[in-house]
């Protein structure tokens, strides 16, 4: 078997090609491994924004942090200036949650972010002028009452009551919006209106109303999640 026949046999051709590839692959691998090093640099730092100011990087036409802070602050101050709610000899019992606070707007928003903030800030500011009933925690209270009465848990230190606290007034409200978009430019405008109402839970009378409205325009709206 001569050299030429050895080189040209199918099995030997595979071996030769493989050998050439190895000779090619080794320096390439060495080169590549030389390029792969740790990019030892600091990442983009997280930026804290002032929640009471428009977001600097992603401002859209929907309800944003500065609107939530502004509207809850305005409603809280307005409620505390209402003598029927905040100047009674016997402080009224109030329920503030998102159960009857509906979102019919084009903005995607967790309604609890508004009602939770309003309830917490109002409770802190009212200091006894109003009593807040945690109806959204009714299940938790009921469970504890049951295991106390069943003898699973002891009675605690607070005197037992015949029933959970009933509410005198409850928050209702609605988020609505009107959108406009220019088809040529893509510019978007949204008018948003948020209404707040305090309802007498016996008569149905609306004893207090508040409204927060704004209109925003933006070339390209952002995506709210």
């Amino acid at each position: 078997m001569d050299v030429h026949s050895l080189h040209r046999s199918p099995g030997n051709i595979k071996i030769l090609v493989g050998a050439r590839l190895v000779w090619f692959a080794i320096p390439v691998a060495v080169l590549l491994s030389g390029c792969q090093s740790v990019h030892n640099a600091a990442g983009t730092p997280t930026t804290y924004n002032d929640p009471s100011a428009p977001p600097p990087l992603a401002q859209g036409v929907g309800i944003e942090s500065q609107d939530i802070i502004g509207m809850t602050d305005q409603m809280m101050r307005d409620i505390l200036s209402n003598p029927r709610l905040a100047a009674q000899q016997k402080p009224p019992r109030v329920i503030i949650d998102s159960e009857y606070f509906v979102n019919e707007s084009a903005s995607r928003i967790n309604k609890n972010i508004i009602t939770d903030r309003l309830r917490v800030e109002l409770n802190r500011a009212a200091v006894g002028r109003m009593v807040f009933v945690g109806r959204h925690h009714a299940g938790m209270v009921e469970h504890e009452r049951k295991i106390k009465r069943d003898g699973v848990a002891d009675k605690g230190t607070v005197a037992p009551t015949a029933a959970q606290m009933g509410g005198d007034y409850r928050l209702g409200g609605r988020i609505t919006s009107q959108d406009a978009r220019a088809p040529k430019t893509g510019a978007a405008t949204r008018f948003s209106q948020i209404t707040f109402e305090m309802i007498d839970l016996e008569s149905g009378e609306i004893v207090w109303s508040g409204m927060y409205a704004f209109s925003k325009s933006q070339q390209d709206d952002v995506i709210y999640r």
Partner: peptide, 8 residues
């Protein structure tokens, strides 16, 4: 003063 005693 408002009727509830707050300042407006």
């Amino acid at each position: 003063r408002t009727p509830s005693g707050t300042v407006e």
